[in-house]
Structures are given as C-alpha cells and as structure tokens.
C-alpha cells in the first residue's frame, strides 16, 4: 500500500464521514461545520489527482466563501433545531433511505462495470503523475470556453441582482 492509496483512503474516508455527518446532525451549525470538513478532504483528493488549481479554488470558494455565507445565514436567522411539527412520516423516511441505497448501488455499478467498456477507462494517462497547471486551465478558459466563461459572468450578475431584489422586497413588505 503506497502513500497515494493511504492518502486516498484517508481523504475519502473523512469526506464520506463528513457527508454522513452533514445529514445526521440535528443542528444546522454542526452540519455546516461537517460540510467544511468534507470540502477540505475533497480538496485533498483533488491534490491527489494533480488538480492543484481546483483544490485551491475548492478551499477558497467553497470552504471559504460559500460556507461562510451558510454560517452567516444560520446565525442571522438564529436557527435552532426544528420543531417536530409536520415531520415527515417514518415510512416515507425509510422509503427515502432505501431509495438512496438503491441509487448508490446503481452508481457503484456504473463506476465499476459500465465505464470499463468506454473510452474513459481505456485511456491511459500521459505521464505517471500528470499535473494540470493553472496555465492549462486558463488557456482553455480563455480560448475554447471563452463564451461559456462570459456567460457565467452574466449568471453571477443575474444572481447578484436577484438576491438584492429578493431581500429588498422582503424588507419592504416587513415595513
């Protein structure tokens, strides 16, 4: 068992446990913190895969910006655990979990059996430890994917305006 495998098991295990914790804690603060753990572990996995840029962005954007936003909202609204009012029936909950497990089985089946027969499985990495540099990504982004890149800026702008309108209207209604 080489270092890569050990690290994979470590990061993979932490992210999986973190994910399960996210959906298990009753209090949203704990969930959010667990999610941060998961994100960090995933950043580690990205490093293992040689995707340094993505790993950095993962930490900065997800673990940094997005999760701060989550925590901010949770604390702003001062949300505790929810009352049991209107709780989903146990039967539906059990059914949902069974469904999730079935979906997992199918996902694993795809990962192990189906993809083996495709070009992705047969393609061999060019080097033993391939590294995708920020330069490569930047080149692609500003050449081949220039238009989608510009469109994402529009999406962000729309989101910005949308958020302002939504929250502003809410406060007007309050007054």
């Amino acid at each position: 068992m080489n270092a890569e495998q050990i690290l994979f098991i470590l990061f993979g295990g932490v992210s999986l446990i973190g994910a399960i914790a996210v959906i298990s804690f009753r209090h949203p603060i704990y969930s959010a913190l667990s999610l941060i753990v998961t994100f960090f572990a995933q950043a580690g996995l990205f490093l293992l895969l040689g995707a340094h840029f993505v790993a950095a962005v993962q930490v900065i954007v997800y673990a940094g910006a997005i999760m701060v936003l989550f925590l901010f909202v949770i604390m702003l609204l001062n949300l505790g655990t929810l009352s049991a009012k209107g709780a989903m029936s146990g039967k539906l909950k059990g059914f949902a979990i069974v469904l999730g497990i079935l979906l997992a089985v199918e996902g694993v089946y795809i990962a192990t059996n189906v993809l083996n027969n495709t070009a992705i499985a047969s393609a061999q990495p060019a080097t033993e430890t391939p590294t995708t540099t920020t330069y490569d990504i930047g080149e692609l982004l500003f050449s081949k994917y220039l238009l989608p890149f510009e469109v994402t800026s529009l999406i962000l702008l729309a989101a910005l305006i949308g958020v302002i309108v939504l929250v502003k209207r809410g406060s007007e209604a309050e007054n």
Binding site: G100, L102, E106, I110
Partner: peptide, 10 residues
C-alpha cells in the same frame, strides 16, 4: 422524482 431516476437507471 428520485424513484423515477432509480427505476430508469435500473
């Protein structure tokens, strides 16, 4: 919806 996805995938 998920039920549908599961059934189709299956």
């Amino acid at each position: 919806m998920v039920l549908g996805i599961v059934l189709f995938l299956a």
